[in-house]
Amino acid sequence: MNRISRYIPNTLTCCNLIFGCMACIAALEGYSLHAMTYIFVAVVFDFTDGLAARLLKAYSPIGKDLDSLADMVSFGVAPGLMLFRFIHERITDPSITVYPCLLYLFYIAALAIPVCSALRLAKFNNDTRQTTSFIGLPVPAHAIFWSSLICTLTPDCDSVLSVLTTDLSPTILLTVMAVMAIATSLLLVSEIPMFSLKVKSLVWKGNEQRYLLILAAIVLTIWLGIVGIAMTILLYILLSFVGLRSK
């Protein structure tokens, strides 16, 4: 039984990788909702593989490296491809004129997500300061934000955000998204402390930010749907900044 239990965390990590690959395929095919769903499932497996490793005490150097490689695909490449497809669909529309300088900006923004995700994961594996909290935005949170945001902006998604951006110029929308993508990607490799959702106890004291975030996530998702998920990640960043300033 002990020999079998050693393989459980890595098996869960491989499931993360499988759904990450499925998200990449769905993103390339233009199925944003499917890609987002696969990324969310990958997040669940990413959480459970670490939990299983701690409970079973099945740590290994291979498992650590495998986890980073799976995360790179699921939370770096997949959301980057989603943004790339979103941009490509709009700039290839004959009715839309895009200046060459903006075109470079758009594609650089899409590529910034996987590149900075790789740097973030490499940094995490070698940074001893990130045992109980994070330095920089975690890649799963970044992937959740971009996959849900892109999904809400697709024409077949009946969300508040898609309605508000209906009459917005595609060039303006893409420019705003490109700037946001570069900004959030830089947050991945920043030195800004971010709190972790891992808890040592269930008491309120010391877990205020975590409980507020969980409560807000439930309320925002019920109220706004998928766009509420993206707003939850923005709230996570804001709460981390507030926690930083209060120290």
Rank of each mutant, 00 (worst) to 15 (best):
F86C: 02
M177D: 08
H142E: 09
M194Y: 14
D127I: 00
P114M: 04
L103D: 14
L137P: 01
I226P: 00
N16D: 11
Y7A: 06
L202M: 15
T175V: 07
W204T: 12
G50F: 05
S117C: 10
L173N: 09
F45H: 11
I233M: 13
A216S: 14
M36A: 12
A52K: 10
A70M: 05
K200R: 11
L17K: 02
T13C: 03
V43W: 06
E191V: 01
L102E: 06
C15Q: 09
P79S: 04
G30P: 04
P138L: 05
C151G: 00
S5A: 08
L173C: 08
W204V: 14
T221L: 01
L66D: 09
T165P: 02
W146D: 02
I135P: 00
M180D: 08
V227Q: 15
F145W: 11
E89T: 13
N125W: 11
L239F: 09
I214V: 14
P79F: 04
A58C: 14
L161S: 11
G80L: 02
S240V: 07
F124A: 09
M194P: 01
R85I: 02
C15I: 11
F19H: 03
F19W: 12
L174R: 00
L239S: 04
F134D: 07
T166F: 13
V115K: 05
L55V: 09
D67I: 10
T232A: 13
Y31D: 14
L105N: 05
P100N: 07
K205W: 12
I87L: 02
S117A: 14
T165M: 12
T11A: 08
C21L: 09
L168C: 11
R85S: 12
C157R: 07
I214G: 05
V41F: 06
R6K: 14
L66E: 07
P94Q: 09
Q209Y: 10
A112T: 11
L215I: 15
A183R: 02
P61I: 03
G206D: 10
I62V: 15
I87K: 00
I226A: 02
C15W: 13
S74D: 06
